[in-house]
Write a protein that binds this DNA or RNA. Sequence first.
DNA 1: ACTATATACTGAAGAATGCAGTAGAGTCAA
DNA 2: TTGACTCTACTGCATTCTTCAGTATATAGT
Lengths: 210, 210
Amino acid sequence: MAPRMTTSSYAVLALLSLKPWTGYELTNQAQRSLRYAWPKSERLLYSEPKKLVTLGYATTYKEEAGKRSRNVYEITDEGRKALAGWTETKTQPPRFEIEALLRLLFADHGTLEELQGALDEFEADIEDHHQAIVELMGSYLDGGHPFPERTHLSVLFATFQIDMFKSIERWIEFARNEIDDWPTTKDLGMNERTEDLTRLLAQDESPLDT
Amino acid sequence: MAPRMTTSSYAVLALLSLKPWTGYELTNQAQRSLRYAWPKSERLLYSEPKKLVTLGYATTYKEEAGKRSRNVYEITDEGRKALAGWTETKTQPPRFEIEALLRLLFADHGTLEELQGALDEFEADIEDHHQAIVELMGSYLDGGHPFPERTHLSVLFATFQIDMFKSIERWIEFARNEIDDWPTTKDLGMNERTEDLTRLLAQDESPLDT
DNA sequence: ACTATATACTGAAGAATGCAGTAGAGTCAA
DNA sequence: TTGACTCTACTGCATTCTTCAGTATATAGT
């Protein structure tokens, strides 16, 4: 049975359309540049180009460098056709996995300190990503984009990321302030403050904007 | 071999700590309330409580209603202990899967119309979610929270969601405006506008804030 | 010389998804 | 009243994806 083209297959195929890559380069590039749109494991990123070869969408050869060898993958004409057909497939809905928020939702089983800890970790992760992108933009200014003719796309995407990370950081600050007023994680329920917030949200207004 | 407790197992265990549920209720409740923090398939949500039973963290019995039967799951004392131990495990970093943005990154293989289409779908998904939460908040005001003493947690989480969805919607508007000025998806590269944006982002300023 | 880090992968087990299938119960309309 | 449709209430199977351990060479720093 011929394997199916998944979104991850198209992602790798799209990278191959830019230039030939080795498996190792592909895992690194995909993890660096696609991480915030389509995060995939290193293992999968080694497997996908092999699948593309069996489908006839890529060719591969071994490059020898002393006693080391590495697999180079190159897109085929068939592969370019398949990539063009990507647009005919349905786009998957967005998916946000945030364990820190799951822990917030069930914070009443733990202490305030544990909840604050979860928020701290969340913030640290977001700040890391945030800083990485700001630095990447700095490198673009110095002509560091690997495919200069594609800079407009990377930058529009980066705008999304920076904007989202800023908004998340603002929320974390807000959440910390709220929690600081809590005596415990439990049984606060629909108190005055919560009711005020609920009323705002029900009117589609964010307490962070006001 | 005893199965491992995954984050999803803890999520289901946390739900069970609130009250006993049937498998069917659990799938529905988890998909409605955990969807934006921990999105999981219906299939998994039917499997997890069974796993909890084999681990001794839940008990189950069949409830008969005519010719129909359904499985009811109830947390055990062991289960409550296990849930308390959740805080000792590391929180997984956040993960954002957004195929629409992947398509944006590689939009130069397609047309402007296709890129706009991807943004439209993205927007439609986000707006659906956004509206669902605003309505949920309205129901909370009418006393509709299933566990009133936990309202403060749900509302703080809802603040995150509404704020994030608003921020994404603003970005989509922004992106649409940018794209409207593009003659094609290709080879725009580091033009004047892109350079302006890059400069802003490199200074950690969002073009959406100004 | 030793250690750490980067390069360059693969196999196998387990987690999670998607899809099809089964089947009873209630609703609405032709 | 029969048929169509939706909701309830799941299960099995194939496939996808992640995690982890393992293998082995190359290179830079102390």
